[in-house]
Simulated assay, not measured.
Amino acid sequence: MRDAPHLPSETIREALDAHFGLKPAILEFLPLGNDSASWSFRADDHFLKVRAGDGRMPGAAVPALLRDLPHVLAPLPTTSGAPYATVNGFALALYPLLDAAPAVEVGMSAEHWRTIGKAISTLHTTPLTPALIQAADRETYRPGRRELIPAIEAALRAPQDDIAKELADHWTARKEIIDDLLQRTDTMGPRLAAEEPPLVLTHGDLHTWNILIDKENNLWIIDWDEAAVAPRERDLMLVIRGIGPGLVSEDDTAAFFQGYGDSTVPDERLLSFYRAAWAVRDIAEFGERVLLDPRLSEEARQDAVEGFLSLFEPGDIVEIAT
């Protein structure tokens, strides 16, 4: 996110000291990621993730339980052994700061894709213990932020400033596509839920921005905020055609499945649902930022308008989903 959280730096420092025994000389906000409820900081030689909400934090709790699995970057425990701490309506998780870069920037070889395939196969066959079931979300077969669409469309009918008016014009021009995605997910979701497909532990956000490659060529899977007990297609969708241009090729997909090993053909209906659900979630999230979040700066809201438009570009998620 471009904007820092509404949590004073001094409060963050006090929480790091109280819960992690860390008194950082450097606490630097990093404008990373595309999640309006999540923020990143450098705290000396640590990476700090701050997330809105002082309840469950699957993004820290799940990898903490998976720390013995290869390629999982787990959080550092608090002084009480918890995977994260809470303060003033926010959850804080601390990680080692790796000398690494996102795979989308440095590229992945066929061997890298086979390694990730094997790692995800291990994840999908991990027993669903009571602790994991409690830590992870559970599939609802409803796109994230779907419930915000009525409020977004109401705000679009009476835009309050130039940025909102710009989004309203772009939304109206694409309304037929948006309505089709909504109708598809609203129809498909309950049907799929009624069939009760097999469930596994999924990462839910497995694209090459969330795979790090360090200087020793080790791979690390990060950003477990979307971890959920769900059909395996929730992850496989992200490596079959992907969610945007250039993120995964057919050769990458083939190498991934060489490592993954399971020869069972993924369910095309589930893949189709998850593509459409991803598009709906992103459309709603950008709409929320422009119209429903009064904390955001004009710059962040304008970025959200551009993000909304990018979803409809050739090869991006809307085209993939439709």
Score class of each variant (00 low, 15 high):
H6Q: 14
E10V: 11
E14T: 13
L16P: 14
D17E: 14
A25D: 12
A25N: 08
F29S: 08
S36P: 10
D45K: 14
V50R: 08
V62N: 05
P96C: 02
A101Q: 15
V106W: 04
E111D: 14
R114V: 04
T115M: 01
I120S: 00
S121C: 08
T122H: 01
T125C: 05
T126Y: 06
A131F: 02
Q134M: 05
R138V: 07
P143Q: 03
G144Y: 06
G144C: 01
I149W: 03
E153M: 05
D162S: 14
A168Q: 04
I177D: 03
I178F: 00
D179I: 00
Q183W: 09
R184Y: 12
R184F: 12
T185K: 02
E195N: 05
E195S: 11
I211R: 11
I211Y: 09
N217Y: 02
W220R: 07
I221L: 15
I222G: 11
I222T: 11
A227P: 02
A227K: 03
M237K: 14
L238T: 02
V239P: 01
V239F: 01
D251L: 12
D252K: 01
Y260E: 04
E268Y: 06
R269H: 11
L270T: 08
A279Y: 01
R281V: 00
D282W: 07
D282F: 02
F286I: 00
V290A: 07
L296W: 08
A300D: 12
V305C: 04
G307Q: 06
L311N: 03
D316K: 07
E319T: 08
